[in-house]
Design a protein around this nucleic acid. Structure first.
Lengths: 219, 219
DNA sequence: GGAGAGTATCGTACTTAGTACGAAACTGCT
DNA sequence: AGCAGTTTCGTACTAAGTACGATACTCTCC
């Protein structure tokens, strides 16, 4: 019974709408909160209706990973490679921050969608245009992406957001720290991480610069 | 009814045995294959028996993450920092290769166990002993771990193991490649990744060296 | 050596989630 | 109107986490 009463006109479903709604649900409640039923609720339909547009939940997961890849700004081959690669690294980090659940997914999905392939192609192309050999490009891209993904993993696992609430969260761990068993961790926490103004996110630029410097030396 | 017939003496359960069995199940069938029922089968008991040793499945997940951290070789503060840090990076990579499911877990768990804390403490201590300032240690460790985790994520998402079967797996993707839409990816695949002898794992040493070189320059 | 008390294991059953199967409601054509 | 194609939904089965309480075994302490 589509578009039932004619008055409360409900937009048509579509694969696109299903996947976008899935992203919204995951953003709100994590991957665990994404169930066919929660997705159906979000779309204001009954669970089985979404199965007209996707074969199964796996297809939804593949689909939203590709949507996320599509949100990352593409580097432009032929431009200033440091700027282009840096730009897309920052963009990727932002996107993964917006959709932390995507990191876990990218690991388990094995069938890349078109946005994913386009994304990788643009990156590889940027390195090649900058003068990196094919082998060097493989090295560089593997390293850079390992850093971006890994940083996102770390950032996602932080139990706090920003620097303000770091202190209180750390309070709980401090009980274990105060046993004196972890002196170096304690020092790092007390003298650095818990200081006002500390933002783990700043570590991203340090790492990115170090890596880009190292890569530049290859040329 | 413990140790029932006296003859088929079944070893006592324990939290330790439960967690080790959980690791074994996850190693065999991935995180998805780890259910209370599959775990119980592995232990040769009935599902509810494991709940005597753990409060819920979450506790199992926290527990096995800590077990995995415990498998990683610790660096020794005060030794040759490059060697020590490099050793633990390789060890971490090996361990994460043995237990690929652990990567996804580390992201979502927020209550570190003792092995986890000990691990981080040893790393931080090694940097400090090498002469890195507290702030530099934070930079260095964040960068290094981002790389190690990120590399593990990438390695886990490879649909093949070793270089032999790369070719056939790539065959499927090639259909999309051959459309000519992804020229740089195609070049990378054909001229490099699919060449005999290519092993993605080798990229690890390149990245690790580049990072350690960059860090050494800080001192 | 029997009576609790404590320890370890299990049976039953409820809940949530994915989804197969087919019915039903609506659309546009003829 | 009648029919075919499209879209949505109702019912129901299965798998998995786990609450609750029963059951069986072990270890004191008299």
């Amino acid at each position: 019974m589509p578009r039932s009463q004619g008055s409360t006109e409900r937009a048509q479903l579509s694969r696109e709408r299903v996947l976008r709604a899935a992203v919204a649900v995951a953003d709100g409640g994590g991957l665990g909160g994404l169930t066919i039923r929660s997705l159906a609720t979000q779309l204001d339909v009954k669970p089985m209706s979404v199965y007209y547009y996707v074969a199964n939940k796996n297809e939804i997961l593949d689909g939203i990973v590709d949507l996320v890849f599509g949100e990352i700004e593409l580097p432009v081959p032929g431009g200033d490679w440091r700027a282009e690669i840096g730009k897309r690294a920052h963009s990727a980090r932002e996107v993964l921050r917006r959709h932390p659940w995507a990191i876990a997914l990218m690991e388990s999905r094995t069938s890349p969608g078109p946005a994913t392939l386009r994304h990788h192609d643009a990156n590889v192309g940027t390195f090649r245009a900058a003068g990196f050999s094919v082998a060097q490009t493989a090295h560089a891209y593997a390293l850079l992406d390992a850093f971006v993904y890994g940083f996102a993993v770390q950032e996602a696992s932080l139990p706090f957001e920003g620097s303000e609430d770091a202190a209180e969260v750390a309070g709980g761990m401090m009980e274990q720290f105060s046993s004196g068993q972890y002196p170096h961790l304690t020092e790092l926490a007390v003298d650095h991480v818990l200081q006002p103004g500390y933002d783990f996110g700043d570590e991203f630029d340090f790492g990115l610069s170090l890596i880009l410097d190292g890569l530049a030396r290859l040329l």
